[in-house]
Design a protein around this nucleic acid. Structure first.
Lengths: 232, 232
DNA sequence: CAGGGTTGACCGTGCGCCCGGTCACACCGC
DNA sequence: GCGGTGTGACCGGGCGCACGGTCAACCCTG
């Protein structure tokens, strides 16, 4: 609505194209053609292709951190918090799908790129939150002792791999995937594994908070519907 | 040492470059320069860049399936087999590192590409083995009931994400990572979680078989040392 | 001398980015 | 109200380059 709606359109289209084709496969020509404007206009707004990517990454991570803040405040215990993180991670395959794919498919490649310091900082912040939840849970005795960093990376891996196979139009609903992941993962961590079922339950308290966080996030972003962009 | 040493050299160099820069970042010019020959020679041997990638993928998957066959024969129970799969998956970050990174960093992108049918078939075969181990283990009562496919994908995810962060020269030895992953994952699956520690143990029976399988695989490939190629 | 291995000049294409310029509009003193 | 001045979105052609791939000729080796 404001000045710069054009800018937003360009970033959105860029995001969609990166999700479909990857960064290298995305070019100004097709992007401009799809938007009905010229290559020069895109350059005018963003300067370089790299800048487009930087903004994509930063806005993405900021949305994620905002959501985490909500669950963090609403859920006290480390077990609930960890379960919520996992539920959230899985939900991104549907909630903010296009951006999620665009972001996840090549994160590693751009992690060390110049100009990406900010977004890398945000990612570190996110990861650190999970690590601290794990160490906290070990301290309280909720979790069996173990390496918090490795466990974090194990969790991140399963979530970051999802864009690879998950089909939002498929038979398997996201909630079911999240439930399965939480059940298995938390089952392996909890000192009392019988608690896992409750934390995984799609109708349980944890998921209720997760839904709330996602709704809040969508409100901030301006309720952009998540279209069904499938990567190629 | 290998038949068509020239061809082998080119494929090895290609693999190393893809691991470092990705497929798009890999070009004939640099590749040829690095090998001390001309672009034309590479084209003469392989025809297209795509062909290089196809061979990389197929040889990679064949090596992996050969290893799996060894553990499959040596280990009877589903719990042991599953643990061995995970140990193997983690070990690839060191054993066949360069090829592993070249393979994993963009698998998804080329999954549906024409000419990749064979390698995709091999990947399906590999995945199906894990799924069948999981269903078998559920039948025998070793594992708690759950969705075998989702659990497989969860496992694959954590393993496929490793190239992203694992540093073979770092303080954390692979065996420790594997132990942690197995302990957590199997702990979440087993009807009797106390069995997990034994399956994860780096000095245990499962790992012994895994080592054997990897040694056998390396013998077939012609004992190429695994250099420390770090992705960028 | 046959034929595979190798060369290096060359081609066509696609892409990121630049740049001179148009146009609509807001703001100004008069 | 009106000419003048500035601003910023947008255009579109094109430069320069890098890359995948071609090709005709050369050089060994058996």
């Amino acid at each position: 609505m404001r000045r710069g709606s054009r800018r937003g359109d360009i970033l959105d289209a860029f995001t969609a194209m990166v999700a479909e084709r990857g960064y290298d496969g995305t070019n100004f020509g097709d992007l401009a053609a799809g938007l009905g404007l010229s290559k020069g206009t895109i350059v005018h707004h963003f300067g370089t292709k790299e800048q487009l990517l930087t903004e994509l990454h930063e806005t993405y991570m900021r949305r994620r951190l905002a959501e985490v803040r909500v669950v963090w405040d609403a859920l006290p215990g480390p077990a609930q918090r960890l379960a919520a993180f996992l539920h959230l991670g899985v939900r991104y395959q549907v909630v903010d799908r296009t951006a999620t794919i665009a972001f996840q498919r090549e994160v590693r490649r751009f992690a060390a790129a110049p100009g990406m310091e900010t977004s890398r900082g945000l990612r570190d912040e996110y990861r650190q939150l999970v690590v601290s939840v794990l160490t906290e849970g070990e301290r309280t005795g909720d979790f069996r002792p173990g390496d918090a960093r490795l466990r974090t990376l194990q969790l991140f891996g399963s979530v970051h791999w999802m864009w690879t196979w998950f089909d939002p139009a498929g038979a398997e609903p996201v909630a079911a995937v999240a439930a399965s992941y939480v059940d298995t993962y938390l089952g392996g961590l909890l000192a009392d594994p019988s608690r896992a079922a409750d934390l995984a339950d799609p109708a349980g308290a944890v998921v209720a908070v997760v839904d709330e966080a996602l709704a809040a996030g969508r409100a901030v972003a301006g309720l952009d519907a998540d279209e069904d962009v499938g990567p190629s």
